[in-house]
Amino acid sequence: MSKRDYYEVLGLSRDASADDIKKAYRKLARQYHPDVNPGDKEAEAKFKEAAEAYAVLSDPEKRSKYDRFGHAGANGQGFDFDGFGAGGFGGLDDIFDIFFGGGRRQRTGPQKGNDLRINMEISFKEAAFGVERDIQVPRTEHCETCNGSGAAPGTSPKKCGVCHGSGQIQQAANTPFGRVIQSRTCGNCNGTGQVIDRPCPTCRGTGTVRRTRSIHVKIPAGVDNGVRLRLNGEGEPGLRGGPPGDLYVFISVRPHKIFKRDGNEVFCEVPITFAQAALGDEITVPTLDGDVEMKVPEGTQTGAVFRLKGKGIPYVNGAGRGDQHVRVKVTTPTKLSDRQRELLKEFAALSGEKIPKGAEKGFFRKVKDAFMG
């Protein structure tokens, strides 16, 4: 007798999510489990069928093979119920998850403290060459009066008499599987395993206080907008002897009036005159390191781009720097003196161009278009 489709067994479509698969299996497991239906062979068969379908569809790799090749792809992945923990049932953890909804356990050992985040804005040049800053970080810290114990000086916490220091209280519950022991957090000590008779006057028994701490931060050269720096151990204190969390510094870089950045390359635009473009010249160009001289060759057109090697952004790993790209833009004079006008007319005549009377404006527009590309 051929096997039914696993999705059909669980009553699901083929695009069902992992959560849908788990919920469907829980429902069928509660309904058909052998301990809920003692002696019912049909219910036991349906439970095994649902468990086999869940064993395959709950595993991403097995599900992928099944979706492509059907039961042949799941060959060797069959499920035989041999009792608790067999096959794809997942053991006692899944049994509790199915019948009690999970979440029965609570961590009572050492826990790492919470991480913190702070935003820092820096200038374009600080991002390029790095900067050191002292930042003010509000955070929770261990109380110095009681050294984090929560008890008044000269006293110490005592073992909880209800849970005997475990932080958990066990209760027995009757289930289809028999008598099962469940644990819950002790209400007398809130799961800490300790009680404080005389609370610390500074922290009122919590063992922690809020304080603003000055932390020195080194921003490396070459960072970009959106970079996240981690300062180990500068977050919130850990619980029950656990390590502190970390502090994350998120960097934002203010835009520059002249420079733009793409990776480690820097771009800027510099104006030049008609004469400088036509005859060539040596011009002053701003860089992150200060002004430098750059040669503009004769006959340069507007929009031409020149490269200044090693004048870009340093690489974070220290392996050199990017380049700076300078785009020149030929500017057109807005006002001409009579002498300048005459010289331009003479230039046009020597170039073989005629300027009809009254067409001077058209000529100057033509000269502008020639230089502006």
Rank of each mutant, 00 (worst) to 15 (best):
R254I: 09
E49K: 01
L92G: 03
G235Q: 07
T208C: 05
Q171H: 15
I283E: 09
P110W: 06
F69Y: 13
E61H: 13
P176Y: 11
A359L: 07
R68Q: 11
H71D: 12
V36M: 10
A152W: 05
F96L: 13
R211N: 13
T206N: 06
R139L: 14
P314D: 01
Q31G: 01
E282P: 00
V227W: 15
A16V: 13
V223R: 15
A319I: 07
I181M: 12
I98C: 11
G148T: 07
M1R: 15
Y248T: 06
I122M: 07
R68V: 00
G320A: 05
T284D: 04
L116V: 06
R210I: 00
Q77V: 04
S156L: 12
E234H: 09
A173S: 15
D369E: 02
Q170F: 14
A172M: 12
G150P: 04
D82R: 06
G76K: 04
A50M: 08
S252P: 03
N225C: 11
F363Y: 14
P244A: 14
A72G: 04
V305F: 10
G109K: 06
I215K: 02
K295L: 03
P201W: 09
G102L: 12
R63Q: 09
T334C: 11
G113V: 11
R327A: 10
K260H: 11
Y54I: 01
P237C: 05
